[in-house]
Design a protein around this nucleic acid. Sequence first.
RNA 1: CGGGGCGUGGCGCAGCCUGGUAGCGCGCUUGCUUUGGGAGCAAGAGGUCGGCGGUUCAAAUCCGCCCGCCCCGACCA
Length: 572
Amino acid sequence: MKASRLFIPTLKEDPAEAEAISHKLSVRAGLVRQLAAGLYIFLPLGLRVMEKINRIIREEMNAIGAQEISMPVLHPAEVWRQTGRYDQIGPEMFRLQDRGGREMVLGMTHEEIVTWLAARELRSYRDLPQIWYQIQTKLRDEARPKSGVLRTREFVMKDSYSFDTDEEALEESYQLHVSAYERIFTRAGIEFYMVESDPGMMGGATAHEFMAPSPAGEDEVALCPACGYAANVELAQSVPDYPEFPEAGIEEVETPGVRTIAEVSGYLEVEPALLIKSLLVMAGDEPVLVMVRGDQELQETKLARVIGEFRPAQAGEIREATGADAGFIGPVGLELRKIADESLAEGVYVTGANRDGYHLRGVVPGEDFQAELHDIRRVKDGERCRHCNVDLKLERVIEVGNIFKLGTKYSEPLGATYLDESGRERPIVMGSYGIGPARVAAAAIEQQADGKGIVWPAAIAPFQVHLVLVQPGDGAQATMADRLYAELAAAGIEVLYDERDLSPGAKFADADLIGCPVRATIGKRSAAEGAVEVRLRPGGEEQKFPLEEAAEAIAGLLAEPPGDGGIQAGQP
RNA sequence: CGGGGCGUGGCGCAGCCUGGUAGCGCGCUUGCUUUGGGAGCAAGAGGUCGGCGGUUCAAAUCCGCCCGCCCCGACCA
């Protein structure tokens, strides 16, 4: 395509509202424009990238036998009522009424709808297994859209759903998705990890996320460099390390106005690891005292698995339950449910005395108080792996895909059943699997951009070759460039042909910003010798080819498997 | 929802504290020159200063309310 006719509004300066690299560059390179918070218009270049990613997804989904369908974005509320999610989900779901006053919702995901379909059409074990997928718009009224295209209110998602006879068959569908996802992200040219994740409210027991490492990510994962253990910090486990403990023996000490861990640590000259951090939460109407070590943080998703939904207690509730203010509460002498992190199984600690202005020293868990022990702390960088005792690494990541075993959570309420070989009616066992194509694109930008702009992996670049004609007014150069353009096009290579009448610097800067893998230049320097200059976007190393051989040489460069200077992908 | 920041030609910003003339860079238009890393000269176009209300002789500037956007946190099915 000729650049003079393409709508590629590049910008010299970063947009004021952008923070993340991928956000800045996707606006500057003319991929997207923001309509409102969390709502983006995809411009020609951005759409080309999305379509490249979607094509890879389609090919790999089809390869595991998945079949593409398309479900509505607008759903009757009734279907969501049947699974209970209509009431469970809060303001994140867009709700509206049609002209007849019927309650409708905008789909934030499609488990209900696909299960509604399966309930009507899948009847026999002979109909199973099935994998259905779509690449469809989702709407979520996000509390805080952010980071450009990474977290939006309307976004396209590849979602697939598997239908199987039992858990064993589900495992097969699950593994098929694992392999398809690995191929998809590898082909797309991003680095990624598959990590254990919290199934959360999706139900089911097993879930994994595909995570692309990037400082712009919202999630964090713990990785073991030795055994490959990889988990979202929401559930990652580690071996606690212990400090040296002082002597036991309870003693009350005056600590006027000393409330926080840092203050107590400083005032009593005791390291934070020798303190117990006591938090009061409300699980429904029941107050629960939650304890982690002073140098640890509570991982709320882990606690929720133990006590269900909870919220922090308010000041009044804290005083009512403990007789003290938040800074002075502790487990000793309290008659309420107590949950302590497992690392508190041994040791001697300082805790709040449940009396304003006082703490207790020499408190021994198990003797001075009893608590249920669970892993409820957040893994810290440098803690050791449970499997091989090697230091764990924490890394920020962008969630680009997820896979869930749903079991019968949706099939039962929606009546999606089948008859097995013996004629018995049984619920279909389901799985749910998502990929965010825009996040794949953003992850690719985040992982590979340099100071000049985007460096696209070849497979998802908007064009493979950026052909720069330096002086369009020079007949000899133009003739050469026209010929190369035609030859590349004939070879099936996508070329962005920049024949605009701009200064060379402007065109080179745009080429760097847009980030196509190969740049071919024809200017007076090369035209004089009948040559084309070819350079790869990441490296910058330049080769010259005679015009006659250039198209073939470029095709060869593009066909080369991703190598050193280019794309890295795969698992840790 | 809590905390913080911002809103001034298309984009990026100054001006606001201390009220009185709206300014800079980029981009855009026209002409001439130029053409290997965001060209030069000249001449131009383009702004209800987010909105509403208030104070004042006078408001981009001071006050109030509202709206929008961004960041941190909460949330994230």
